[in-house]
Simulated assay, not measured.
Amino acid sequence: MYQHLIYQIQNGVCTITLNRPEVYNALNTLLIQEITQAFEAAASNESVRVVVLTGAGEKAFCSGADLKSGMTNATSLGDSLRKNYNPMILAIRNLPKPVICRLNGTAVGAGCSLALACDMIIAAENAKMSQIFVSIGLIMDAGSSFFLPKFVGSQKAFELCSTGRVVEAQECLALGLVNSVVASENLDLAVSNMANQYAQSATSAIGLIKKVLNQSSFSTLEEMLELEAINQDLAGKTQDFEEGVTAFLQKRKPTFKGF
């Protein structure tokens, strides 16, 4: 079904693996379109409760745009972003389910943006991130101008984008770019534990949490209070809410179905 990625579902966990290790999982047009399609498939599949996004190989999560695919200053990069990159990022952010980035190695350029678009990032100790765009005379894209200031503030975002310097895993953790850093040999276990926790959680509520938080950066307090009321009403009509209250009253662990 897919040429450049691996799509697997097991026990409610959908794993999407960028599978171009020979070029450090660089993004060409087909891979970008397949990532978008994979997230759309995960959105429509009720058995999927959480998505894990990662890269094949040990060295790189994603090395950004594949510069060998014919990018020149005669190419309309804006049209390429609108047609390919932007739908990919929106498919991740609009997915009403949690997305965990298994950051197994280097994430640079649009690959860094791709990681930042996820809801959580669990990084291996050898992972690195870089807004490398400026090194070829470009600005950040694929959402980094939105994500970075939220995570690190405007001044640090300017520094990282205007220098393109490499940020090691521990500094990523200190800056708030990743949620945790683990030894490389423990990465699979850490990601699996988190994914399994989400696969057994109240998926609808998490989707609504994600939806509300996505609005918080450009809404007033009054608007957010109303958005909370609207979405709390939706959450209160789910079977998971009923199960959660029943389990609480019965002093047992809830068994959520995700709807």
Rank of each mutant, 00 (worst) to 15 (best):
Q10P: 10
Q10H: 15
Q10V: 15
Q10L: 15
Q10F: 14
Q10I: 15
N11R: 12
N11I: 14
G12A: 01
G12Y: 10
G12I: 03
V13S: 08
V13W: 01
V13G: 00
C14S: 05
C14W: 08
T15N: 08
I16R: 01
I16V: 01
L18V: 08
L18R: 03
N19H: 11
N19I: 12
N19P: 02
N19S: 10
N19C: 11
N19E: 09
N19A: 11
R20H: 06
P21H: 09
P21R: 07
P21W: 00
P21T: 07
P21K: 09
E22M: 14
E22A: 13
E22S: 11
E22T: 12
E22V: 13
V23I: 13
V23A: 07
V23D: 15
V23T: 13
Y24D: 12
N25Y: 01
N25E: 08
N25P: 09
A26N: 08
L27S: 03
L27M: 08
L27H: 00
N28F: 04
N28A: 08
N28W: 03
T29Y: 12
T29W: 12
T29F: 11
T29P: 10
T29E: 15
T29N: 10
L30N: 09
L30C: 10
L30A: 12
L31F: 08
L31D: 05
L31R: 06
L31K: 04
L31A: 09
L31H: 05
L31E: 02
I32A: 10
I32E: 10
Q33K: 12
Q33I: 14
Q33C: 14
Q33R: 14
Q33P: 06
E34C: 00
E34V: 05
E34F: 03
E34M: 00
I35R: 00
I35E: 02
I35L: 04
T36N: 09
T36D: 09
T36R: 07
T36Y: 05
T36V: 08
T36M: 04
T36I: 09
Q37E: 14
Q37M: 07
Q37V: 08
A38Q: 02
F39L: 00
F39S: 00
F39M: 04
F39C: 01
E40A: 07
A41I: 02
A41Y: 06
A41T: 02
A41C: 10
A41L: 12
A42G: 03
A43W: 15
A43C: 11
S44Y: 13
S44F: 13
S44L: 14
S44P: 05
S44A: 15
